[in-house]
Amino acid sequence: MSPHIILRVVSKLLIPMIVIFGFYVQFHGDFGPGGGFQAGVIIAVAVILYALIFGIDEAKKAVPPKLVQWGSAAGVLLYAAVGLATLVMPFAGEAVNFLDYDALHPDQSHHAGQHYGILLVELGVLITVTSVMLAIFYAFAGRVPDIPDEEW
């Protein structure tokens, strides 16, 4: 039997709620405080908690380092792709600016393009922040200490 059974049981209950709260912060960011950066950190904290309780190797099985590397690039590419899409889409026959979200949806009276654009940009930020936070954690947690434990 594991000596940390209470920590393991409680963390198995908390980690899904932490992730759900992270997605709540992400999707509520249009209407109140929050957004991609805050949600990315919250979701990364759920994986870091998992690593602290179950071990770094188990965390790397759940969220592989290769996925973290791809996520770091994919989030930035999504952000840039939204900006480039706004440049190439016509907006009432006139030139538009980078990240001018009104070009993303033809219904200008309700500014639906603003909602879609912000949602996609914040999703890119979420993916990037989560991936970079996990990459930093994996780098620090996976290093070998310079001083052996006996010399402390």
Rank of each mutant, 00 (worst) to 15 (best):
residue 79 Y to V: 11
residue 25 V to E: 04
residue 84 L to A: 11
residue 28 H to S: 11
residue 32 G to E: 07
residue 66 K to F: 06
residue 49 L to M: 10
residue 128 T to V: 01
residue 29 G to H: 05
residue 42 I to A: 01
residue 54 F to E: 05
residue 133 M to T: 12
residue 51 A to Q: 02
residue 67 L to G: 13
residue 22 G to K: 07
residue 99 L to D: 03
residue 140 F to I: 11
residue 26 Q to V: 01
residue 38 Q to C: 00
residue 120 L to D: 06
residue 64 P to R: 06
residue 91 F to I: 15
residue 23 F to L: 15
residue 78 L to S: 01
residue 80 A to R: 01
residue 91 F to G: 04
residue 113 G to A: 02
residue 64 P to K: 11
residue 121 V to F: 00
residue 111 H to C: 03
residue 61 K to L: 14
residue 28 H to N: 15
residue 95 A to C: 03
residue 110 H to K: 08
residue 19 V to T: 13
residue 50 Y to M: 11
residue 125 V to C: 01
residue 117 G to E: 13
residue 31 F to W: 08
residue 123 L to R: 05
residue 24 Y to G: 07
residue 39 A to V: 09
residue 94 E to W: 06
residue 68 V to G: 01
residue 132 V to Q: 02
residue 132 V to P: 03
residue 62 A to Y: 00
residue 45 V to Q: 00
residue 38 Q to M: 14
residue 130 T to K: 01
residue 72 S to W: 10
residue 100 D to N: 12
residue 49 L to T: 11
residue 109 S to C: 00
residue 131 S to R: 03
residue 60 K to W: 00
residue 124 G to V: 09
residue 82 V to S: 02
residue 46 A to C: 12
residue 117 G to R: 03
residue 50 Y to D: 04
residue 46 A to Q: 00
residue 72 S to G: 15
residue 62 A to M: 09
residue 33 P to N: 14
residue 90 P to H: 14
residue 53 I to R: 01
residue 85 A to H: 03
residue 60 K to T: 04
residue 102 D to E: 14
residue 82 V to Q: 07
residue 19 V to I: 15
residue 117 G to F: 12
residue 57 D to W: 01
residue 136 I to E: 04
residue 75 G to F: 11
residue 116 Y to F: 13
residue 96 V to M: 09
residue 68 V to L: 00
residue 52 L to N: 03
residue 124 G to S: 12
